[in-house]
Design a protein around this nucleic acid. Structure first.
Length: 273
DNA sequence: AATAAACACAACCGCTCGAAT
DNA sequence: AATTCGAGCGGTTGTGTTTAT
């Protein structure tokens, strides 16, 4: 029993969008907001797949998109974020107002990869090219086990390109993403970026500790939405969390404790300290 | 001027995840 | 608990444009 297709392929257009199709989509979303993408094409009079409509809107028609070339500052931010997050394009895009995941992904593949290679860096590991292979092999051989929930916590702190020092982005991210626990006795060294994804704990006895602590934060876009309601996200829906809520859960040796009891507040939200 | 190669990017595809039933 | 559905994500492909020969 398979899943039904997302749309009737026989009656849908493919390929480049026409101006008329764009206009229909924009008009529909302006008057109805972003809703059910599956039913949108029919309602808007478009012979397109809902997924296609969503992509077109998000990547091209959205009014808050920043068109034009990436700045040097954006380049460096993308590189820094990629070194910490890997190919999490949507998370990276969340840190770059007006840029889409697709745009950043394409830009990465066509420009930044080459830029890093020309700097003698491996675009995947961000390590010097001649040592990348060795480092990867070493990392594979380690006993450490990492259950890395960084994506959930990373989104908690909005970054602004207006910040004066781009390096703050990484230090802020590192601060937000490092696994924290009273059982954690070791941390990876700060910014050897390729090693950053490893955040496990190994006691001196050789015993491997698995940190199952989970820290949850609201995504950056959601926080932006609080300040800037849009047609797509009406005010009622964006008046998200007025009250600070502890989103920190711990599992394991401190079981039975729902809150870590050590939360600190950041930007109105509690986070695991 | 014609053609091939390289590049850039929009769009598609397949998959996963969470919510609803 | 199992199934279905809608949304979103990341990888890949297709196509138009630019550059080199």
């Amino acid at each position: 029993m398979g899943r039904s297709p997302c749309c009737e392929k026989a009656h849908t257009n493919k390929g480049a969008w026409t101006k008329e199709e764009d206009q229909r989509l924009v008009n529909y979303i302006h008057s109805h907001g972003e809703g059910c993408w599956r039913s949108l094409p029919k309602a808007a009079g478009l012979q397109r797949c809902g997924k296609s409509c969503r992509l077109r809107w998000i990547n091209y028609l959205r009014p808050d998109l920043k068109r034009g070339n990436f700045t040097e500052e954006e380049d460096e931010l993308i590189i820094k974020l990629h070194s910490l997050l890997g190919n999490k394009w949507s998370v990276i895009a969340g840190r770059l107002p007006g840029r889409t995941d697709n745009e950043i992904k394409n830009y990465w593949n066509t420009h930044i990869k080459r830029k890093l290679i020309s700097r003698g860096l491996d675009p995947h590991t961000h390590q010097p090219l001649n040592t990348a292979a060795t480092t990867a092999a070493t990392a594979t051989a380690t006993k450490n086990i990492c259950l890395d929930f960084r994506n959930t916590s990373v989104a908690a702190t909005p970054l602004s390109l207006n910040d004066e020092n781009p390096t703050n982005y990484s230090s802020s991210l590192e601060e937000e993403t490092k696994c924290s626990s009273s059982t954690t006795e070791e941390r990876p060294p700060p910014l050897e970026p390729a090693a950053a994804p490893v955040a496990a704990t190994q006691k001196s006895s050789g015993e491997v500790m698995i940190n199952l602590e989970l820290s949850i934060g609201l995504p950056f876009q959601a926080m932006v939405a609080q300040r800037r309601p849009t047609a797509a996200a009406p005010v009622a829906a964006t008046a998200l969390v007025e009250k600070a809520v502890c989103l920190c859960w711990q599992i394991g040796s401190q079981s039975g404790q729902q809150f870590c009891g050590k939360c600190q507040t950041t930007n109105g939200f509690y986070r695991c300290c």
